[in-house]
């Protein structure tokens, strides 16, 4: 079934070779991904029309077109879809508006290109001409966010593992730490982040460290939960076995509990690093000293919606890359631990 469009697209010279390459890619799970991407783009392109219709009509009116209804006051209260259908022949500029309410995907793609490759390679401030990354490029801002994310994640993961070990081995910690860890996650981070930054600034900590603290605050929790579960995953029989060897608690930890917890650890590290990125971005919102969060807020100040979306995509790409990296380390580790390949 899926072959029909494939051979159509790959028609001509090298048809067989190309068809087989595409078929392999499709059987490798690419088809569902591509389908979803196409569906999202389709919905997006359609949604652009009603989202931008009022600005489009204002622009068309200035250009001399007849609008239904004619008065701006009436249009303000009219439904967006109604305006679209009444002025269907005028919606052309929807996909090329400047400062659109919702920019079209290709506008976002252009902005992404302009603020990465174009800015660095051709721009006056770019790395090619100035030797340093441009402070207008997403590569620079992504790097700022990445630094805080990684530092915060390392702190959060270490803290999470340490707390989990404490919870598993100490009944006092089991009863006292867990409720506070849960409460800590019920406070909206957007409310907490500015306070953390202000408090840290007053003790002389700002910039990367302050953001990393917020990242760590978000990422330690999944690690604690996953690690506690993992460290408790050995069954009674395996604990009894070590007891018959008269193993010490340290031996029990290093030889049984820790290796047993590895799959749980990696699952929570993946959640943790994504949360860490969110923390870094939230930490950049109130400060405006670079980073993807600063780009997003800056874009919203000046109505540069493409800039917001481009920064959003940069953050998504960064998150996907980080989660993939953890997954790669996980596969390597589990293979080294004898998992079937």
């Amino acid at each position: 079934m899926t072959d029909t469009p494939v051979s159509g697209a790959g028609g001509g010279i090298g048809r067989t070779a190309r068809a087989s390459w595409v078929a392999r890619a499709l059987s490798g799970g690419l088809l569902p991904v591509v389908t979803v991407v196409i569906a999202i783009l389709a919905i997006w392109y359609v949604a652009v029309v009603p989202m931008n219709i009022k600005e489009v009509l204002t622009q068309q009116e200035r250009a001399g077109a007849e609008i239904v209804p004619p008065s701006a006051a009436e249009r303000r209260d009219a439904g967006r879809w109604g305006l679209v259908f009444n002025n269907f022949d005028l919606i052309g500029p929807s996909w090329s508006m400047e400062r659109a309410r919702l920019p079209a995907p290709h506008q976002v793609a252009q902005e992404l290109w302009a603020s990465t490759w174009d800015e660095e390679v051709n721009g006056r401030r770019g790395i090619v001409r100035s030797g340093t990354l441009s402070n207008r490029s997403l590569i620079y801002h992504g790097g700022v966010t990445l630094g805080a994310t990684v530092v915060g994640f390392l702190i959060g993961a270490a803290l999470g593992v340490a707390l989990a070990v404490g919870i598993v081995y100490s009944r006092v910690m089991d009863l006292s730490v867990m409720p506070w860890a849960i409460i800590s996650q019920t406070i909206p981070i957007v409310a907490l982040a500015p306070m953390i930054i202000v408090v840290l600034y007053s003790v002389g900590l700002s910039g990367l460290v302050a953001k990393a603290v917020i990242s760590a605050y978000l990422s330690f929790f999944p690690v604690v939960v996953g690690m506690v579960k993992g460290l408790r995953s050995p069954d009674q029989m395996q604990m009894d076995l070590l007891h018959t060897y008269n193993a010490t608690p340290a031996q029990q930890f290093w030889r049984l509990r820790l290796p047993s917890s590895v799959p749980y650890l990696f699952a929570s590290l993946k959640i943790g690093i994504a949360a860490s990125l969110v923390g870094a971005i939230v930490g950049e919102l109130p400060v405006q000293r670079g980073g993807l969060g600063a780009r997003m807020l800056g874009g919203s100040y000046y109505g540069q919606t493409e800039q917001i979306w481009a920064a959003l995509f940069a953050a998504a790409v960064l998150a996907a890359g980080l989660v993939w990296l953890i997954g790669w380390i996980e596969r390597r580790t589990l293979r080294a631990m004898g998992a079937p390949t």
Binding site: M237, D240, T244, V262, M337, G338, A339
Partner: peptide, 12 residues
Amino acid sequence: GYVFQAAGLYPW
């Protein structure tokens, strides 16, 4: 030495 009902070998 104690042998349990399940082999209980460490998979790693």
